[in-house]
Design a protein around this nucleic acid. Structure first.
Lengths: 212, 212, 212, 212
DNA sequence: AATGAATGAGTCTTCATTCAT
DNA sequence: CATGAATGAAGACTCATTCAT
């Protein structure tokens, strides 16, 4: 909402700059998804984004900066997703479950984006920490609420993140499965010490709908 | 000259050839660990292996073949590890637990090898299936023995593998933790439906010793 | 708004224009001194001058024009220096000596300017002739006054100019030396045929003071 | 002499490598002379040398290294020239005079080489010191032999070198002059404190002939 | 088999210049 | 006039691959 009103008052030059940057990031995501990190050649990127090759360097100083920026972009998109979906839920276990299932849903909806995410998470350290903040809060809440019982928080975070990525990878590789999102979420909840029956119950809750 | 001393030089020649090939693979593993797949340039590989760049092409036709061979090499090394350690154990849950903990031990002992493994597993599809065979057997055994309770075998395999890699990565990145191997194994067992108390018990069993 | 306050802004506009041009030239001199001719990139120049890159093209049509203008700017600054310092002295030998010593003093005072000068003198032919005019007059005067005795005027000019630049370069490179200006001037006078004793005497005269 | 005999015993591979390197340096010198430092583009260099552009990088890691190597090459050529010509002469003043006149002769004979030299001397610091060693020895000898009388050795070196380059530059710019070499040498000797008559005498000595 | 010089297509990066706002 | 985004030609550099020795 706020965005639309604001945009009109900004200069067109500003909009153009922002738009080009976004075009570049979008193009980079598409290429990432198709070809992996190695395939992201900057002249290809320029072509895909519909600008000349020199223009890339008005936004990023080196190829490294492009890779970083793509990671950050994905992190931002993720944050928004997560915030939207688990807003208003106070149970840590449920929030985490919603997060996992949302990601799984994304893997079904948008395999391209997902491949890019998986690639970038591996590649860009900074990306991981962006995710980690949300996760850590949910883990701690779940523990205080008596749902989680894990020996070490770092390990718990590593397990949740890698297991989720592994499950998403399964989906984008085309494995057919009923309710893959619930299956994955249930296993992750159990690994955190939630009892089998409670894990199933939480994993089966309907996902909150959003206006989007 | 060399051609005449048949029997003897054949052996030596053969041994030399095998040695050079091994040097190349070892060098490739080291480079993988340091720089990831993208960093494996063949002239760098030749230098690291102490041979000239042309020599690489006596053993591999293209860069792709090198990457495949490295994957295969790791798979073979892995198979040997796993077979050695879980030989004589019949419980699927215990075998899987031993496998996970053995990998975790390897991550502590040999971070270079581990980084190479993590990289390759992501990159080389063939590699994954080599691991998968051992894993699938243990999962099925555990299920038949009433220890495991998972909704989908593919998902279970994906979770175990990715979670193990995630935990190994944590170790390689230098996180200090008591009994990281047990912590990880316990969580994985729980995710497969093993009860909390039983998971702890299995994860705490002493690892079988080997002659090595 | 700005368009309405005509008379006043015209003046201001004019002054502003002149000021921007001067900013550009000053910035160019600084960059010259730091990086040599090759380092003078126009976007760098714009940044150093605190204007946008497009603005440069309101003052100079091409990069070449910038280089020329810098040369001219230095020539003008030089002319002023020389005129001020040797005004009122009629002996050619003394005038030349004052010129050399003044340049040497400048090398001590303002190494940045000096480096720019040395670079430009080499690069820009036109620059050399600006210096040459003053020099030629002094040489001819000195010869007519019986102080100089050189076989060829072109050669004498080349020697005086290159030797002076060489001596300035020495100073700029940080060699510590007492009375470097006198030492250099004395050698140059001798090379023009002034006797050793007379050369020393002339080189030791106090420099005329200026109001500046 | 020794060279020819030796070359035959060397492997052809070795010869080829040395030859390619020399081709590159020769080509670089030609381009330098024609276009100055800025014109030395590495693909142009490759073309001029008759090799592919990648080959340049088998010999030099960066463009900087090419420039350095060209400077060094010139220094080596110079050293040989100087040694050949002033061999067997013990007077410092005469040796220095021979050096200056030899350079001047070179400027007449080979303007291309000379332009390259002048450019490189300015550009490559390392180059200067190579020249400086020969020069310093002659200056000290001349002083001990009672011919030179200079206040500061660094200044004397700077003056001799820059004056010689200035005079060479005059020649390559096409100024017509009788005995330019003697005129320049005479002025330089005078600047070092040699009396006018003696300077003329030394500068007029016939240059020692060489077999070359 | 081993060598290593040569290749050349492919990429990254810079920078003078244009132009719509 | 000032701005600064966009352009694209030019040049630096990498690297898988070939081949004569």
């Amino acid at each position: 909402m706020a965005k639309k009103a604001a945009a009109n008052t900004l200069t067109r030059g500003y909009k153009k700059k922002a738009r080009t940057r976004q075009q570049l990031l979008d193009a980079a995501l598409r290429i990432y998804a198709r070809t992996g990190v190695a395939g992201l050649a900057l002249n290809t990127l320029a072509e895909e984004a519909g600008v000349s090759n020199g223009t890339v360097y008005n936004y990023f100083r080196t190829r490294e900066e492009v890779l970083e920026a793509v990671g950050l972009e994905l992190a931002v998109q993720l944050s928004q997703q997560i915030l939207v979906f688990s807003e208003g839920v106070s149970s840590g276990a449920e929030r985490l479950c919603i997060g996992v299932r949302t990601f799984m849903g994304k893997a079904l909806d948008d395999p391209e984006w997902t491949r890019a995410l998986i690639t970038v998470v591996r590649y860009a350290e900074g990306m991981r920490s962006a995710l980690a903040n949300y996760l850590r809060a949910d883990l701690q809440a779940g523990r205080e609420q008596g749902d989680f019982d894990y020996a070490n928080e770092e390990m718990a975070m590593a397990m949740v993140m890698s297991a989720t990525m592994g499950a998403m990878n399964l989906v984008v590789e085309g494995i057919e499965m009923e309710h893959a999102d619930r299956v994955a979420a249930e296993m992750i909840l159990r690994s955190l010490g939630v009892s089998a029956s409670k894990a199933r119950k939480i994993a089966s809750l309907p996902l909150p709908r959003t206006a989007d």
